[in-house]
């Protein structure tokens, strides 16, 4: 059996070095003008520098160009794609078909990963986008384990699944926080908090707290819990999932590094020493994560063991 890739989201160029130490195999970076909800902001120079470091370590770097594009960003997208080609990153994450078009027009040879988040829900779509150039599909977080496994069994592309971190639930083009402060005639509050990503919505009925922030792409709202599958990885290993992702958006560098290392240990235990070795250590790894887990962010297993109705 092939070891799955451990994919993480660094916050800075320096952070990448720590994450290589901690055992990450691959990295998602980029900037908000082209990519959605990134853990860190990396301009083109940063990407170039990061790529050098990552490639020297024999690891992979993927750049997010998965924004929902409007006409006004298409010209800049072309330039950006050419920059990425020159730098030689290992993959481009996309959701918008405009990226597929631009890549074809410009003769970009970087592999594509299809990552539209919420709508990647069945294996037919995976194969559809594979025929149009996607080497990998990143599945929606709102799928059950059975659905994930069935997709992998029928997919012609690599499959990436999130195993840890929060889930983006919502993207509006509107400035929802700004509008709330404007409505209350508190323009200063917007200025004071523009760069802060520490706000949340309290849902009293469900006792949930949903992180919320604004950027170039609009307003983003996140799940109240952090997904954590550190002790539930066996079936994903057996299914042969190609990449396990830890999305570190809105987490600290220290947290991301520690959690990355826990997943490294889990993957190595299973693949180097067998299922029993993993079973023996998984509770300990979970405890380790629980120790550093922020009180405001309960852990759960996402939709892996939860069905949705409609």
């Amino acid at each position: 059996m092939k070891k799955p890739e451990l994919l993480v989201t660094p916050k800075s160029v320096d952070h990448i070095k720590a994450l290589i130490e901690a055992g990450a195999d691959a990295f998602v970076i980029g900037e908000q003008k082209f990519g959605l909800r990134l853990a860190g902001e990396f301009n083109v120079n940063d990407v170039e520098q990061a790529t050098t470091i990552i490639h020297e370590a024999g690891k992979k770097v993927y750049v997010a160009v998965n924004a929902i594009f409007h006409n006004d960003r298409l010209d800049d997208l072309d330039d950006y794609l050419k920059d990425m080609q020159r730098i030689g990153v290992d993959a481009l994450l996309f959701g918008d078909p405009a990226v597929v078009m631009a890549v074809r027009e410009l003769g970009i040879t970087i592999p594509l990963h299809w990552n539209p988040e919420t709508i990647a829900t069945n294996w037919f779509q995976v194969n559809y986008w594979n025929e149009r150039g996607a080497k990998r599909a990143v599945l929606a977080r709102e799928l059950s384990l059975d659905e994930v496994v069935e997709i992998k069994e029928n997919a012609n592309a690599e499959i990436e699944v999130q195993v840890h971190g929060m889930t983006a639930m919502f993207q509006s083009k509107r400035s929802l926080l700004g509008n709330y402060f404007l409505y209350r005639d508190e323009v200063m509050e917007i200025e004071n908090r523009k760069e802060n990503k520490n706000m949340f919505l309290h849902d009293k009925e469900r006792k949930n707290k949903y992180p919320i922030y604004e950027d170039l792409n609009g307003t983003h709202i996140f799940s109240p819990n952090d997904m954590c599958l550190i002790d539930e990885l066996t079936e994903l290993f057996e299914a042969g999932i190609d990449s396990l992702k830890f999305d570190g958006v809105l987490q600290t560098e220290g947290y991301i590094t520690t959690v990355t290392n826990c997943y490294r240990q889990a993957i190595d235990a299973y693949f180097d020493n067998g299922e029993d070795a993993y079973d023996e250590m998984k509770d300990e790894l979970l405890e380790k994560i629980e120790e550093i887990q922020p009180a405001i962010r309960p852990l759960d297993t996402g939709f892996i063991f939860k069905e949705t109705v409609y």
């Binding site: 929902i68 988040e117 919420t118 709508i119 929606a140 709102e142 889930t167 639930m169 919502f170 993207q171 509006s172 083009k173 849902d203 469900r206 949930n208 709202i221 799940s223 109240p224 939709f303 939860k306 069905e307 949705t308 109705v309 409609y310």
Partner: peptide, 16 residues
Amino acid sequence: AYSGRCVLSNHMTARD
């Protein structure tokens, strides 16, 4: 939200 890019309902009430 951008239609299709909202799963508030899934996360809050397990309705897709």
